[in-house]
Simulated assay, not measured.
Amino acid sequence: MNEKINTFLSSGLLDKYLLGETTSEETEMVESYISRYPEIENEYNTMQHNLEVVAKASAVEAPKSILNTILEELDDAPVVKLNAPKRYKKWYKFSIAASVAALIFAGSSAYFYNQNKKLQNDTIIVDAEIDDLRSDIAQNNAMLDKVMRQLLKLNNPETEKYIIKGNERAKDLKTVAYINPKEKTSMIDVVSLPELPEEQCYQIWAELQGKMVNLGILDKADRQLRNIPYMEDALALSITIEPKGGNTIASTKNSVAQISLQ
């Protein structure tokens, strides 16, 4: 890999491009490099895959539509049309017109008072919705920060990826472990777990100095990238079927998946 490619990959522009934070000039530059250099294209495809993996951890429900609520409230607002009073040709009609005008004025005052109260209530509701939206934005920003941190871990050159597949007893089992021996971090992504009876569960272990160390329970309902304890000098990772709630000692006879880390 030549120095020009190394310099580009170290610049962090690929990360910015993936997140849509590049300027138009930077975007043009990144796309040019991707099309010209297979090494950069491969790195870009890998980072895209990693971003998809990390994004599963941020699967949150979208916030309520505030815009639709506001538009609906505005659509309900009355449109009042004021017609110009007619002129009467004869003077004795003035008194009748004055009486009618007084009645209209009294009715209009009550109407506009009620509309003003309704508008005040609607304003309070909209303000509450806006506060909820701000809270959702803050939560989403925090989630995005978490995703960014996980993405950086996955894209770290020191991070090693291990795909763990099930044996004949659990053919559809698949998990992916990400281990960084330099930063001493471990993460696991549960891709698929076959169904088990209610009284059983899957448990992951690290083989270390002739013994099996518990790293936690794998739950089908918890399909997301999550941290697991890092075990330095671990020789292998194993997944076994254990009683519900987990076990303190690995049931090696019930092993359904194993991968060497050496």
Results as ranks from 00 to 15, higher is better:
Ile217His: 05
Pro157Ser: 07
Lys117Ser: 10
Ala97Ile: 00
Glu28Ile: 08
Glu207His: 14
Met143Tyr: 03
Leu237Gly: 06
Ile104Trp: 07
Gly12Arg: 07
Ser192Ile: 05
Ala55Gly: 08
Ala77Gln: 14
Gln203Val: 05
Leu74Trp: 01
Ala177Val: 08
Leu9Arg: 02
Leu225Gly: 02
Ile241His: 06
Tyr92Ser: 06
Lys171Asn: 09
Ala234Leu: 03
Tyr113Arg: 11
Asp219Glu: 13
Ala62Leu: 12
Ile188Arg: 07
Ile164Phe: 02
Ser24Cys: 04
Glu183Gly: 00
Thr252Arg: 13
Leu14Lys: 05
Glu26Leu: 02
Tyr178Arg: 05
Leu119Trp: 07
Glu198Arg: 09
Leu237Lys: 00
Leu237Ala: 00
Phe8Ile: 05
Arg134Ala: 11
Met187Glu: 12
Lys81Val: 12
Lys184Thr: 03
Leu154Gly: 01
Lys161Pro: 01
Asp219Ser: 11
Tyr37Ser: 08
Ser192Phe: 11
Met148Gly: 11
Glu41Trp: 03
Glu3Ile: 14
Phe94Asp: 10
Asp15Gln: 15
Tyr44Cys: 00
Arg149Cys: 00
Phe8Gly: 06
Tyr17Ile: 03
Ser186Arg: 08
Glu129Leu: 13
Lys174Cys: 08
Ile96Phe: 13
Gly12Phe: 07
Arg226His: 15
Glu39Leu: 12
Tyr33Met: 15
Lys253Ser: 11
Ile163Lys: 14
Ala257Arg: 06
Phe112Ala: 10
Ala59Ile: 04
Glu160Pro: 01
Ile137Gly: 08
Asn83Gln: 09
